[in-house]
Design a protein around this nucleic acid. Structure first.
Lengths: 255, 255
DNA sequence: CGTGATTTTGATTGGGGTCAAACGAGGTGG
DNA sequence: CCACCTCGTTTGACCCCAATCAAAATCACG
């Protein structure tokens, strides 16, 4: 036993480590299938999607999937395991975090029809990605008419999520934004509207601050303020939401 | 002559009022064609797009195109003339402005595959819209394979723009954000990378503040501070950018 | 011309940024 | 195995920008 955090990380992120290493991974038994490219498609269509996956990519923590200003390759990457940070580095060397992406999210939706990457993408944990070729997806539409509307739906939902995020990070006080961020993480990692109360936040306080538009000191102060108020239990980068209702009230500004 | 603002509005927004009223409007001679659905398609493909337009809709200032929580109809609306405000009304009655949309922008991209509208859309000026049926667009892909990738490209670019917006409104001080907003407006209304230095901002100071995450008093103060500094000339809702370079330096935080 | 909304200006306050320093964990090399 | 170094985190003190409250001025609209 190395460290409680690492142990938790394994239980959270690698629930079937041995099995998935032995069997070839498939979309059919993917735990985040519904959030991902297959969406609500049935098993048969999902099998079609599965055969469109070019390869599974393993990316260790700290490695970049792509860099800002790099030429775009027409590929999409669905995150099967792990978390990513999408960010820019301004010419003055200031980091601006555009988003965090986790299991079931799709990287590269913002590159269709543009020449160069706007952001860099770095793995915050060890990651497993499912690679799709965008031209192959488009071409597959001729045989399976459900594919392309599914892609449009993914793009549209990404747009909605981005809008929602933009609203989150600019409205209200710092504590409201942080509470909203934690709730968004809990909801996103939970299955079908359920919250996952035990969160692993692999990003630094600086990253969270850059994402929410506040200083890392403020993030730290607020987290411990939440802990003293009995809303959270914090152990380094592991956060347990103790009182989701109170956190929701705080995010909505009803405190 | 009613008011200088209205006169300018007409010259900005209704450049060919009589002609477009007489002749049936077409995408081929649309001034914002390149920003819109046709994109970089040639005249022939653009003609295909033009025939996909269901009807041109006239919407007077102050009218809503759709309301939050309304059931989604599978239609897209390209703005040919005018400007829109996309916003939410929280349950406490607080307005949250998601975005402003202008000529060439497309409304409804965030409704594909979702059940209910997330936001309301209200016309800030008299507007002319080009209505597209989303199912017809998808179906047209069989005959014209360029259509659907074009739609994906639109969605992707909308996503990029939304990300960029989210970065704008959370980074830096209030004056930097406002300067960035003005530059974004100027660039968006200009043709192909050129700025339109004469801007008409039909939204209220309150709207701008809600959009940028600041109080309307702050917007007012900063605008006049910019004017005193020789960056702008302001006449109510008409703003002329006098010193674009200085405004850019301010937005980049080099002041 | 009157009424209400919008815009502007001023005075005051507080939240969060800034600077600084101590603390802790993880990794490296001797 | 331990000393050391580096990076991330935490805590404290101070201060500034923008929110808040208030009110006057201006404009839009009937």
């Amino acid at each position: 036993m190395k460290h409680p955090e690492q142990e938790l990380l394994q239980s959270l992120r690698w629930p079937q480590r041995r099995r998935s290493a032995a069997a070839a991974p498939s979309c059919l038994d993917c735990p985040v299938r519904r959030h991902c490219v297959p969406g609500e498609l049935d098993d048969q269509d999902c099998g079609v999607i599965d055969r469109l996956v070019g390869r599974r990519v393993f990316l260790p923590r700290g490695e970049h999937l792509y860099w800002m200003d790099q030429a775009v390759v027409p590929k999409l990457y669905a995150i099967r395991v792990g978390q990513f940070k999408i960010y820019q580095l301004s010419d003055q060397g200031v980091q601006r975090v555009a988003s965090f992406q986790a299991e079931g999210d799709i990287l590269g939706l913002d590159t269709i029809g543009v020449a160069a990457q706007r952001c860099s993408a770095v793995a915050l944990t060890n990651c497993v990605l499912c690679e799709f070729s965008y031209p192959r997806l488009t071409h597959a539409h001729l045989a399976h008419a459900d594919i392309l509307p599914q892609l449009d739906s993914l793009l549209s939902r990404a747009l909605v999520r981005e809008q929602w995020r933009a609203l989150l990070v600019r409205d209200g006080r710092a504590d409201q934004k942080l509470a909203g961020f934690l709730l968004a993480q809990a909801l996103h990692h939970g299955a079908s509207g359920q919250m996952r109360l035990q969160l692993y936040l692999p990003m630094t306080r600086q990253d969270i601050g850059d994402y929410l538009g506040m200083m890392p000191e403020t993030v730290s102060r607020l987290l411990h303020q939440f802990e003293r108020a009995g809303l959270l239990a914090i152990n380094r980068r592991v956060v347990v939401i103790v009182d989701p209702q109170a956190l929701r009230r705080l995010a909505d500004g009803l405190a």
